[in-house]
Design a protein around this nucleic acid. Structure first.
Lengths: 359, 359
DNA sequence: CTGAAAGCGCTTACAG
DNA sequence: CTGAAAGCGCTTACAG
């Protein structure tokens, strides 16, 4: 047999070897009692014939497909590559495939996407929910990423702690007037990040939040944020809840001839792919997507392998195994070049007394 | 039946209705002759029971899974979201699911990834090949995206034409000394884009290519590209083969106090998500990923639905249906704010005689 | 127009 | 240690 026939089946192997399919199945899976001699001959023949187990047959028999679904709010999201890559890696390590579904930011399509996955009989679903969505009990193991407010089976980056890291960094640098850049006040993630940052601002620090979506409703999509004016007002640091907004801030400031970081500090969130290629490179906070993905996939695998199907988004597995309820993974501060002490701290005074800049 | 039991099967419906499963199957699929009366009752009962066809059963019987694989060289690639979203959309429109596989930039893993997909019995595979990879005949319908040099079954953006569009734009603006920014001279895509640009430069234009990977080997990863010096040398335009490099150029120039576009024009490629949020917004060339995805998926569907399996990467379908050989989809110039006439064209002379800037 | 039957490839008790 | 048999849910000729 020169070319391994792609169609080889357990039956083929059994016939050529003169044994039963049950024996071949057992030999290959190592389950029943089979003599080492037979095991060897079966394995050799399997390789020779290029045997590939039929997932369809196995799925039909076992009721498990070995596939997880991944539902994303919007694949076009710049954060998506990291998530998808990490999930795909963790899943394939665990022997599972990943079926993707894009909800295109629409709640209705999110439901449709989930249904499509269920029709394909996925063993579990990893959901990165659309902002503000609550995932209903869909009769299939679910792990939710990045929505700590959803009860149960959730894993996410610790956005609050990430915010604290950036907040502390800014304060340590000596900044006392800080503009926080958010996109939408309805986002839990953004509020956590902002809350974390603020929690590290001592009494003497004065901060304000600029919500970009609201700003654009007023001044038009893509309009300038007026950051140079803020610098004139005394703001020395611009802390965005996403690298995307940080990039916008950085270029807007640079465009106005304001030196970053000499005259203004800029920080982001997420460590997107280009954050280290811009000049100056962006100080940001990265999340450990690999760990997050591992946790989500491990939770799903545990449930599936415990033999449960059709059970529950919110309750922990019946076996009493630990769920991943609201598990938070620390974020990591990546100090690069867009953050530095404010001009005042360097030129005017060596130490900045608290409350020097009243709001 | 309040709660639709997720486990409902053809047999359940048949039994509750007192008909055969064959009839139920026919009624639902509309294939055999079934009386309208029975069809209605079957459909009603199916809805009532929340019947969801088992893909596993169907797959086992028909030999088709209704799933395509998507192999990507590196999911972390910033272009990936567009590709994945478009493929997922086109596939789900056609009734197919999409299983992802990341080859992480490694040729060996690309092969592994393809094998994993084949084990899952995908009906076809869309491959975005790793640079320089040739896809072997893998016994399963394949559509290749973005590698026009691969023979057969390839669809891609027309990188050459996209280059021409940018090249012409730059020349029309009056630029005569243009620095082309590429990453790697081994990339067909990049060479096509550069070739296209150059093809529109008349004799009087002097251009040069700066290969970033080579530059970084010499000066260290993430080092400055020395673009301000190039401006001093008389270069007025910087045309990158990717928005990523354009962003790098833009920030490096801005950082050096060089006004874009007043003192230097910057252009990119691909219209990545942030290209319109930077200040000034980036002139670039977008690709019609939706069309590319449609073509790739349609080609796969045609093959699958023609009933062929195990056939051929390189040969056209036996039925004589058109293959997608080296089909190219036009790219679209998106003129935004980083491109403008060179300073000389505005201040020194109204019209720039050809050959004014010798190389 | 409808039904009985075979079979896709696999795994799992159960007998030998 | 090994095999015969049942059955997962579906579709497809084939008979009635």
């Amino acid at each position: 047999m020169a070319t391994p026939r792609p169609g080889a089946t357990l039956g083929n192997i059994a016939k050529t070897l003169g044994v039963s399919v049950a024996t071949v199945s057992n030999a290959l899976s190592g389950k029943g009692r089979v003599s080492t001699d037979v095991i060897e001959r079966v394995k050799a023949k399997a390789v020779e014939l290029g045997y590939v187990p039929s997932q369809a047959g196995r799925a039909l028999r076992t009721g498990r497909t070995g596939v997880f679904g991944l539902v994303l709010p919007d694949i076009a999201n710049p954060l998506f590559p990291q998530i998808a890559q990490a999930i795909e890696f963790a899943a394939s390590e665990a022997g599972y495939g990943v079926l993707i579904a894009d909800s295109r930011g629409d709640v209705g399509m999110q439901t449709e996407a989930i249904n499509r996955l269920i029709e394909r009989a996925v063993d579990g679903i990893v959901i990165v929910p659309r902002r503000g969505t609550r995932i209903a009990d869909i009769g299939c193991p679910v792990a939710v990423i990045d929505s700590p407010s959803t009860p149960g089976n959730t894993v996410s980056a610790d956005h609050w702690q990430g915010g604290q890291a950036i907040g502390a960094h800014l304060v340590d640098l000596g900044h006392r007037r800080i503009l926080l850049l958010g996109n939408n006040p309805a986002s839990n993630v953004q509020n956590d990040r902002i809350g974390g940052m603020k929690s590290r601002f001592p009494a003497g620090v004065c901060s304000e939040v600029l919500w970009i979506e609201k700003h654009e409703q007023l001044h038009g999509k893509g309009s300038q944020l007026g950051l140079p004016d803020k610098v004139a007002d005394g703001f020395t640091a611009f802390a965005a809840v996403s690298d995307l907004h940080a990039l916008r801030a950085l270029t807007e400031l640079q465009r106005a001839g304001i030196g970053v970081p000499e005259q203004a500090t800029v920080t982001g969130f997420d460590d997107l792919v280009w954050s280290s290629v811009v000049t100056p490179s962006l100080t940001t906070v990265g999340m450990d997507m690999a760990l997050i993905a591992d946790i989500a996939i491990a939770a799903l695998v545990r449930r599936v392998e415990a033999g449960q199907r059709g059970d529950t988004t919110t309750r922990p597995p019946a076996g009493g195994a630990p769920s991943i309820d609201n598990r938070k993974v620390p974020m990591q501060l990546m100090i690069r070049q867009t953050s530095a002490p404010p001009p005042s701290a360097r030129s005017i005074a060596t130490r900045t007394p608290e409350g020097e800049h009243p709001c």
